[in-house]
Design a protein around this nucleic acid. Structure first.
Lengths: 351, 351
DNA sequence: AGCGCTATCGGTAGCGCTAACAGAAGACCT
DNA sequence: AGGTCTTCTGTTAGCGCTACCGATAGCGCT
């Protein structure tokens, strides 16, 4: 202001700024106030058609791109959904992400992605940094979290949807299925098919909660069908999530429990790797050893023998979770805060 | 309102705000100014040890989570790298993302992810919305973009790294390889191995630029080794990127060009699907028909026969691109703005 | 004692936007 | 005619943070 020329003139601060086009610039071109431009962007119906057109022309002419940080700060809404997955490379989650994004993107939400690498400590840091963006919603893979995580999320009052698991009291909402029941059902199915010596092969990694829940289901099934029997278990924690590991684990399992008649893997990746290795080495599946998986990847039904496995609602979990979040983000209460998406045993040739 | 009773009392505006802990709150607890708290977070060395400890205690006690939107607005840095990939489900890019993130995360950068589904129009909208967050850097898959995209990115003055392709004049920096040369090399290798009737099978989709470049390489090779010969090409655009499609395309290609002795697929996904289908149907590979792929997925070397394919620097592209961005985001000029990560022909049993 | 320096802290303006209010102009009603 | 209501636009005050500048105290040195 020129009124500050006088003696006690306060210092004139200059900040670099974005040096990109602002609402003010557009307003100047269109000959209206910044507020009106803002309205054209957010609630065009409340602006008269003539001004609206004029402003829109100015917007195009100036090449305006709204600064969402500023919008976020002023409106207290970020249009961001923070998304926590265990790993980028596990293709299984990418289907869930696709489902999630396909529902959220049309509503103008962006996904801010982070992965934990199955490490609880990393999850904690990740969530802290994601919370910094003040997301409108939180998508979590898994439903077992450290007290620190729970505390942070509760304190933030952000709508949260937990997925891919099943617990009694979710943080906020839950869209998933019971890994334990699914594995139990798998072993039941194998028992029914006549198998008598199953061996569980899966990650017992600290941070891989879903794999542990599958183990729980396996243990419970063994308790039911072979009471008193020491369960056969092979820990796969040391093996990366890759087909190659499945090949190795086939060896390890047959060494550790030669009497096993079926290997029950905690994921299709291992199972398919084992299947491929068995074929290469001339081990007959399912005659010599049967194989079962978890996840029903596309490869699982393409291989010969095709893999017996548990089909999971990969994509639909993402879509349903997105709908749940949308409801919560509108401030409404969904009819049900827990949705069981179920699972399905797929009996094929491998077992 | 009771607060406005007084005569000249200026209107007292109340905004809801985040209602979460702010710097002010922490400052009040620690008995210092907000500015000092801010310094403890950003440049702790400039604060005396005693105050620093006091502030840190207060930060913990209050459960402070910085509002990055506000920080972004004030500092004009977002610590966000916008990341554009064609598809979430193409596992091949997830490796690149892992590489990217593994280098950027330790530096405090978050990935804001978007995917285009191989659609140029969607890419444009996506980039506009990503730019709204004022990212510090831009990671692009591919190097061929619409004029509108180029204009927006140039205007934003954000460091950009294009990847997975090779062109003369990148927008800013480029970390990739030549899809055309790679495919040319593959066909050369097949020619050298004695194949005489190759057939290209791949997406000719408008937005799938990399696949088209592979076709270009194929066409050039045919021109070199079989001058005058009409190139055999099967358009796979209508088939989703899945193993199942490979099975179908095997049929289609053998129908369309029965005399082909080798099918050259634009991606390992199709190629592996074809391989699996051939095995199921008793078609001998490579005797009856040989198969070559592009990408070298893990499955490709696990199958029997193992797939002859082109190995690409999936993960290292991400890492190198991240380093490139870091340099540019520091405002420095990298020694080279174009880095060729190369490729490698992997001769295996399928061809 | 006075000077210049550094280390440490606080005050203030402003980043670009929107919520909340205010006001003008016309439409409509009694 | 006067009042009320609606439609449209502008003004103002923040949102939570950091850049920028100043102020103060303490230090070593002449």
């Amino acid at each position: 202001m020129s009124s500050r020329e006088a003696a006690g003139d306060p210092v004139r601060r200059r900040r670099s700024g974005t040096r990109s086009v602002t609402l003010q610039d557009v307003a100047a071109i269109a000959g209206v106030s910044a507020q009106t431009v803002s309205r054209v962007l957010r609630i065009p119906d409340e602006v008269s058609p003539e001004t609206r057109d004029r402003v829109r022309t100015a917007l195009r002419e100036a090449g305006y791109v709204p600064n969402l940080s500023a919008r976020n700060l002023a409106s207290n809404r970020s249009k961001i959904v923070a998304t926590v997955i265990p790993s980028l490379s596990a293709s299984i989650f990418s289907e869930t992400l696709t489902g999630l994004s396909s529902v959220l993107a049309p509503e103008g939400y962006q996904l801010l992605l982070g992965y934990t690498d199955y490490d609880d400590k990393r999850e904690e840091e990740l969530i802290r940094s994601l919370l910094g963006r003040r997301p409108d919603g939180f998508f979590m893979t898994g439903a077992l979290h450290s007290p620190a995580v729970i505390k942070m999320l509760k304190a933030s009052r952000v709508p949260v949807v937990e997925t891919w698991d099943w617990i009694d009291t979710p943080l906020d909402t839950l869209v998933g299925f019971s890994n334990e029941d699914a594995m139990y059902a798998m072993v039941s199915s194998l028992h029914e098919a006549g198998y008598r010596a199953p061996c569980f092969v899966g990650s017992l990694l600290e941070g891989d909660h879903r794999s542990r829940r599958r183990l729980d289901g396996y243990l419970r099934a063994v308790g039911t069908y072979w009471p008193g029997r020491e369960p056969r278990v092979v820990d796969a924690s040391a093996y990366p999530l890759a087909l190659e590991s499945g090949a190795r684990l086939l060896e390890v399992a047959r060494q550790a429990h030669p009497e096993s008649d079926v290997l029950v893997f905690s994921t299709d990746i291992y199972a398919n790797g084992a299947l491929l290795a068995a074929t290469s080495r001339g081990i007959a599946v399912p005659e010599e050893i049967a194989v079962a998986g978890f996840g029903d990847f596309e490869l699982s039904r393409m291989l010969r023998p095709a893999l017996t496995t548990v089909a999971l609602p990969n994509t639909t979990i993402g879509q349903e979770a997105a709908r749940m979040l949308l409801t919560r983000m509108r401030g409404e209460r969904p009819e049900r805060t827990k949705v069981d998406m179920g699972f399905e045993i797929r009996r094929r040739e491998s077992a």
